[in-house]
Nucleic acid binder design. Structure first.
Lengths: 88, 88
DNA sequence: TTGATATATTGAAATGTGTCTATATTATTA
DNA sequence: TAATAATATAGACACATTTCAATATATCAA
């Protein structure tokens, strides 16, 4: 786990919203996700790549669709590490 | 509390290190903090301002010194809000 | 009051980030 | 196979961020 990379990924309003949408909707495709934004498709794709690269979001290929979901394990691990490093 | 502002403040290696140093050392001055870095004094001052603006760091003026400390309440509030918004 | 010390501010350079349009790639379906 | 649909990549632009040197401000001490 790259702590700083995850922190940077979380430090953007669009990506934070993506995570909230994915948490609320479970597995959805990129297209469905895009419907929640006025941003262009490449922009959403770019943000998804950042979330994927730090392993906060998982992608399951299903034909021409990509099913997205939050890697809750990684999110939990991030919270715990942050708390441990900073607070304890 | 401005969640995104705090996330951005945490998403920098130098500022993260500042918080860790402050957590480990309690109240120290800017000068003592700078001793932990090879960065210039204005650079550290700049990062401190960002941490102060989002209320993660408190400053107590003591003559010509500024005594720094982490606002643990804010840090805890941040963790809880993040967890509540994302996980629950 | 003057010189020294601690911190903040300014302005500039380099680098990073978010966004778009255009286009490529991959998979489906007619 | 050809057209369509879903997603990814490339390149460009504007803006933000990190850093520094120079300087300003504030406080202490002689």
């Amino acid at each position: 786990m790259n702590l700083l990379k995850i922190s940077k990924a979380l430090a953007d309003g669009t990506r934070y919203k993506i995570l909230k949408i994915l948490m609320a909707n479970g597995e959805i495709s990129c297209g469905e996700l895009e419907d929640h934004f006025t941003l262009s498709q490449p922009t959403i794709s770019h943000h998804l790549k950042i979330l994927y690269d730090c392993e906060l979001v998982s992608v399951k290929k299903d034909g021409q669709h990509s099913l997205l979901s939050v890697n809750k394990k990684m999110l939990e691990k991030y919270f715990e590490t942050l708390k441990m490093e900073l607070v304890k």
